[in-house]
């Protein structure tokens, strides 16, 4: 289940930032993905919400800072 969600999450990141799935590292963040600016960040938030049928609150939007945090927060929201 967790693996499947992670795969779908990678697809979203790949599509939003326009990078191949196999190039997304587990330390991916705005520090190492050049196209990760504030606009793309909001695009990623919408795409994740659409993909997993969840809604992030204002605080969570600013907490989606890197791959591990996106995974943790998405899993947390799906489980709840």
């Amino acid at each position: 289940m967790e693996k499947l969600i992670e795969e779908r999450m990678r697809e979203v990141i790949s599509a939003v930032f326009n990078i191949p799935v196999n190039e997304i590292r587990t330390d991916a963040s705005s520090d190492n993905i050049e196209s990760w600016d504030s606009l793309k960040h909001m695009n990623m938030v919408s795409a994740l919400e659409e993909e997993f049928l969840i809604e992030f609150d204002d605080k969570e939007i600013f907490e989606l800072l890197n791959y591990e945090l996106i995974k943790t927060i998405v899993l947390e929201k799906i489980e709840n």
Binding site: S29, E68, L69, T72
Partner: peptide
């Protein structure tokens, strides 16, 4: 999550 957030 708190640990990851603090680090990030």
């Amino acid at each position: 999550k708190v640990r990851l957030l603090t680090a990030a």
